[in-house]
């Protein structure tokens, strides 16, 4: 996959996939969308369209830290690499400077990030790109992509990553209440707290249904989409016990206790 990077604009089917992604994102952005759902689709699109091995979205929590709001995988090790960037790393540098950071070969970056680079290499990552989520002068977070080969993401890929980051920015900031203009701080905090609700729900389902966090998230996502509900609402119902974990069953091959349609 990574060999294709330089030639990525010509990758068969990519234009099609790209067009479909933007259609899905545009559909998601209408009326009362769920921000966790939108950002989750965005990081999935990054992996699919950019041939990234992993992708994550970090937001300025306005308390001096970066918080993970979306990740292409729920593995603890990946989350730790994202969170490590509160100390150092490409995403932190990108957010501070409000400018992209692209490293084709992580080995070379060891002196720059002595903590981050070994952790990323140990996870099998060899290249990294971070693009800012920016609104005018303010940077609200960063989109972080990892590749498993020591090859730089092409300029086209970086432009596409920036386009997806811009969609994320719009998604986070444009949600307006019907009656009043709202501020960046309100929207950022809303996105961050929504993500925490989803994490708590994943824990409930993972424990109750003996699945891992990825499967638990899948179950929430599927239930929301199948029943046309907002992802965060489903998560809240799970945490509060208003929705039995057996109803939000694990995705693959599980028996559904309630007999509802999938």
């Amino acid at each position: 996959m990574n060999d294709d990077r330089q030639a990525s604009p010509l990758r068969p089917g990519r234009e099609q996939a790209l067009a479909e992604t933007f259609v899905v994102l545009a559909d998601t952005l209408v009326d009362d969308y769920d921000i966790v759902d939108l950002l989750d689709r965005l990081v999935a699109a990054c992996v699919q369209l950019l041939g990234a091995t992993a992708a994550g979205l970090l937001l300025d929590d306005q308390r001096g830290s970066l918080a993970v709001v979306a990740s292409s995988s729920e593995q603890t090790r990946l989350l730790e690499i994202f969170q490590l960037q509160n100390n150092e790393g490409p995403c932190l540098d990108c957010v501070r400077a409000g400018a992209p950071v692209a490293i084709g070969d992580l080995d070379v970056a060891l002196p720059r990030w002595p903590l981050f680079v070994p952790a990323a290499l140990a996870a099998g990552f060899h290249s990294v790109t971070a693009v800012p989520l920016r609104l005018r002068e303010q940077t609200i977070g960063g989109l972080n992509l990892f590749g498993d080969a020591a090859a730089a993401f092409s300029l086209d890929d970086q432009r596409l990553a920036q386009a997806l980051a811009d969609v994320a920015t719009i998604g986070i900031l444009q949600r307006r209440s019907a009656h009043r203009s709202t501020m960046i701080a309100e929207q950022l905090q809303h996105a961050l707290n929504s993500r925490i609700v989803v994490e708590q729900a994943k824990g409930v389902l993972a424990e109750r249904n003996t699945t891992d966090m990825d499967a638990a998230f899948d179950a929430i996502r599927q239930h929301a989409r199948n029943h046309n509900l907002k992802l965060t609402d489903v998560a809240l119902a799970v945490v509060r016990g208003d929705l039995a974990p057996a109803v939000v069953a694990p995705a693959a091959g599980s028996r559904r206790a309630d007999g509802e349609d999938l």
Partner: peptide, 8 residues
């Protein structure tokens, strides 16, 4: 995540 697990 752990909070949700411990809750159960």
């Amino acid at each position: 995540q752990a909070t949700g697990m411990v809750q159960v």
